[in-house]
Design a protein around this nucleic acid. Structure first.
Lengths: 206, 206
DNA sequence: GTCTATATAATGATAGAC
DNA sequence: GTCTATCATTATATAGAC
């Protein structure tokens, strides 16, 4: 489990960065102020500037740290790819920041890395697939990555729908149960899918 | 198809509202300024205030309009539920605003309405399902709604992964093909799902 | 490394004329 | 209904002392 070190143990620089990730995760980059971040970290406004220079640079430092955390999680998950189906469970306190990074548009390398990993997994699975896939592995990996990240970026809505707190163990269990049920039951039969494909071929995009 | 009326034909109030939806969709609520919105609509800052009173109220007017548009689309899609699998194709120019509304946290009723609609559809499908579902229909509907909205809220990333513009007809076809393939092929076998469920029962949340 | 104080720019809100 | 001009606030960036 990803445990967060005691704030007292961290350098001021690390405390500021963690406070920034929390505040940006909660309020978004625009609404998060370096004043409040400084206060939450227990330092002055001037010290934030001393360490990071600007609000932009502070955000980039947060991004670098997020990537470092995710790389480590990816390596841990490499042995058990099913863990990757549930980024919510595994991202811990960095999950809100990840959601902001994805939706506010500065996390492209992160998303692409998830697609890379999934693509290899899918290419492997394709070898034992009876009929040839209709679309390339990268496109499917992209869609699966997007679907897997949906609970992260739409967390508030998913929590309301499931009636649980997704940061709680019970919430994560309920989420996983729902995901398992959906992933193990096709939403469309092969016949329905074939019919829909035909409609696409005829040029009906709706 | 949802065609946008010629801007010249609209009242100033409607032009301002449409410009606001475009700007908020593109930059987010915080970064969108009423000055730029006014300029895009071809009116003065004062007129925006005259019609809407405040930036908040302008956003609420945009929300109301979005709901109206979506209600209409829902009614059209009621006869063909498969269309609902692809909100990107159908939302047209309002899609970026919808994404902001969902991720910046003020579109709860909209999401819940999607869940409602899906829930009825799932409850119907459950009647002809061999084994009993592991989780309630609402939870599954919530997850499916979130997954269906993933291309909308993660549009930029999905476009990069698919290598297409999702607002283009070709982009929508490619998206639909990928979705159809995934929805008609279980990502997990019943055995894998059962195994994962057992792990959850044993208390392993990762 | 850490702080306080100040400068500057942007933006939402307001007032009032036409 | 529509405009221009102005106010007040807020937040980032900067300077400089300890």
């Amino acid at each position: 489990m990803t445990t967060v070190p005691d704030p007292e143990d961290l350098t001021a620089r690390a405390r500021i960065r963690d406070a920034a990730m929390r505040h940006i995760g909660e309020h978004g980059f625009e609404r998060a102020t370096i004043r409040e971040i400084a206060e939450a970290a227990g330092v002055s406004l001037g010290l934030v500037r001393h360490h990071f220079g600007s609000k932009q640079a502070l955000r980039e430092a947060c991004d670098e740290h997020l990537i470092k955390v995710i790389r480590k999680l990816h390596e841990e998950a490499a042995r058990d790819p099913r863990g990757g189906l549930n980024p919510v469970a595994v991202m811990g306190p960095y999950q809100p920041y990840l959601a902001r990074a994805l939706t506010e548009g500065w996390a492209a390398p992160l998303f692409d890395e998830m697609v890379d990993i999934g693509e290899r997994w899918i290419a492997e699975a394709d070898k034992s697939r009876p009929e040839p896939p209709d679309v390339d592995a990268r496109s499917r990996s992209t869609m699966i990555a997007a679907m897997a990240l949906a609970p992260t970026v739409l967390r508030r809505h998913v929590e309301r729908g499931l009636g649980v707190d997704l940061t709680s163990p019970e919430g994560q269990v309920k989420l996983m149960r729902a995901v398992l049920d959906i992933y193990s039951h096709s939403l469309l039969s092969p016949e329905e899918a074939a019919q829909a494909r035909k409609a696409l071929d005829r040029g009906q995009t709706t």
